[in-house]
Amino acid sequence: MIEFYTQIKWVHIIMVLSSGSLFLLRGLLVQAGKPRIAMAAPVRYLSYTIDTTLLTAALMLLTILPGALFANGWLTVKLVLLVVYVVLGTYALKRGRTPRARAISYLAALATFVAMYGIARMHSPLGWILLLR
């Protein structure tokens, strides 16, 4: 499967950007007072499809390079932040009890996404901080 590494990596990257863009849009809809549109069945199913493809590509990459998870500190940090991102995202879109809680969760989830993206781009747990040095 190593011969497909580049293609799988690109699918993964495209799905990361698609997932982040869809979350950005859904969060903006919730913040604009239109949660019914953000949580409509077609939008949710698109989100499920993108996230399933993203997870499948990630697991395929992990299968190709099984030692990468523990050999690379950046990948471990990214996976921990992924859990934080998912939890914040659920509070931003539906579990937040007040509009303020949803807004704070939304901004925190977006910041976490940007941090994860920086960690992945820089291949370092420091992510975007490396640019400041």
Rank of each mutant, 00 (worst) to 15 (best):
L22M: 11
V86P: 13
T53H: 01
R100N: 13
L46C: 04
D51I: 02
A71H: 09
Y91D: 07
W128V: 15
L46G: 00
I104D: 12
V16Y: 04
W128Q: 10
Q7Y: 15
S105F: 01
T49P: 02
L29P: 10
V77F: 10
H12K: 12
L126A: 14
A57T: 05
I13M: 09
L61Q: 06
A40C: 06
P66L: 03
F23C: 01
R95V: 04
L46R: 12
I129G: 06
H12C: 06
A103W: 02
R26F: 06
T63E: 08
P99C: 07
K34T: 11
T76C: 13
Y85M: 11
L22F: 09
R102S: 02
L131W: 02
V30H: 03
P125N: 04
G89N: 04
Q7F: 15
S105N: 05
G127I: 12
N72V: 12
L54M: 08
R100L: 14
M1K: 01
V87P: 05
L29A: 15
I104K: 00
T76K: 05
I50Q: 06
L110W: 07
W10T: 08
A38T: 01
W10R: 13
F4Q: 10
L88T: 02
V84L: 14
T112H: 01
E3G: 14
I13Y: 00
L79M: 12
P42I: 05
G89E: 04
A58K: 04
V87W: 11
Y106V: 00
G127N: 04
L88H: 02
